[in-house]
């Protein structure tokens, strides 16, 4: 690939070579032009709509927002991060300005609303991810081992709710939960309920999120298992390996990319979830997305930016760790 000469276009023109179309084709076939045409628009898009907003948000997170006229005061400060993480913004913050995170007997661990929201979000996202994994693994295995119309129908039925939009699915659980919702009414009718766990709250939120993101996990696992050579598994079994051995030594390592990928697809949106906890938490479950949204709504833009940056950085860090772990694991052949 020769380095193109920018003057060539003019040379072409001077020589009057070829038609417009020929010139166009020739121009486009030069590497640098081709690169410009192919990468240019995407780069502009990513720079302008992904990198720029994130960088802007990063900058805003080090500012103060005037709460009277909602304008950003461009003076660098770390105050927003201290506000988030219970620093010394105001003296009362750690007592009156905080909430109880953990209480065992007389021992009390306190946290800011943001810290609690972050921990709650990560906890909910983790449980959701594990639930999805546990529920999707057997089914993905079954689908990968079999073929035919039944598999196709199953995939169809699994995908359908998936395409039916997040909102509709979250809403369908609104009808199910609640002290007089479908589940508790049914339990009440058979004399078991109503049970608190089927009221709106954290469990309802987890169920809603699991329902929402389950197909992501299933599809990712299925995609990674579908390429597997199951004769290895059979061979191992023939050599006397127990089922658990086979799952641990063969299937899990081989499908690790799918497990990590699926977990990522479930975990990330669960951390940032805000419609599901809003609808199914009945205002009592304050995940980090809800808190950040409220700050934006209140025009506390600096604080919202700082909170967002914290979430982004923590997720990226978690992902880096996750991918490292997987690679190591695969190398070790565990």
């Amino acid at each position: 690939m020769a380095t193109p000469n920018p003057d060539e276009i003019e040379d072409d023109a001077a020589r009057g070579a070829g038609t417009v179309r020929a010139r166009l084709v020739r121009t486009l076939s030069r590497p640098r032009t081709a690169l410009g045409v192919t990468m240019g628009p995407g780069t502009v898009w990513i720079a302008g709509l992904l990198v720029a907003p994130l960088v802007f948000m990063l900058a805003v997170s080090f500012t103060t927002t005037n709460l009277t006229d909602y304008n950003i005061i461009w003076e660098p400060t770390l105050a927003r991060f201290r506000e988030l993480l219970g620093g010394s913004v105001d003296a009362g913050l750690l007592d009156g300005g905080s909430v109880v995170l953990l209480e065992v007997g007389s021992f009390q661990l306190r946290a800011t609303a943001f810290e609690k929201a972050i921990l709650l979000s990560y906890a909910i996202a983790t449980v959701t991810t594990l639930l999805c994994l546990a529920l999707a693994f057997p089914l993905a295995y079954l689908l990968a081992r079999r073929s035919g119309p039944l598999v196709k129908a199953t995939i169809f039925l699994m995908l359908l709710p998936f395409f039916t939009m997040y909102l509709v699915r979250a809403y369908s659980w609104v009808l199910m939960f609640g002290s007089k919702g479908v589940i508790n009414s049914a339990l009440g009718a058979v004399g078991v309920g109503p049970l608190e766990v089927f009221n709106y709250g954290v469990p309802a939120t987890i169920v809603g999120l699991t329902h929402a993101y389950y197909p992501y996990m299933l599809l990712t696992l299925y995609a990674s298992m579908d390429g597997l050579d199951f004769s290895l598994v059979e061979a191992a079994r023939d050599l006397g390996a127990s089922r658990i051995d086979v799952i641990r030594d063969q299937i899990i390592p081989l499908t690790m990319p799918g497990i990590v990928g699926g977990s990522l697809f479930v975990f990330v949106p669960s951390v940032g979830a805000f419609i599901t906890p809003q609808i199914l938490g009945q205002g009592k479950v304050q995940m980090v997305g809800i808190l950040i949204e409220r700050w934006v709504y209140e025009s506390r833009l600096s604080l919202a930016s700082a909170g967002s940056m914290f979430v982004v950085v923590s997720i990226v860090a978690a992902m880096v760790l996750a991918f490292r772990y997987v690679e190591l694991d695969e190398l070790g052949g565990a």
Binding site: T43, L50, L54, F56, L264, F265, A273, G289, S305, V312
Partner: peptide, 27 residues
């Protein structure tokens, strides 16, 4: 480019949404 192109997959929608809103509003 590839790294940044994939980035939206690991940023929760609400965060990028908030970022874009602040960005559009202020800029």
């Amino acid at each position: 480019f590839r790294t940044f192109g994939i980035l939206p997959m690991i940023i929760p929608g609400v965060i990028l949404g908030v970022g874009l809103r602040i960005y559009f509003r202020e800029v």
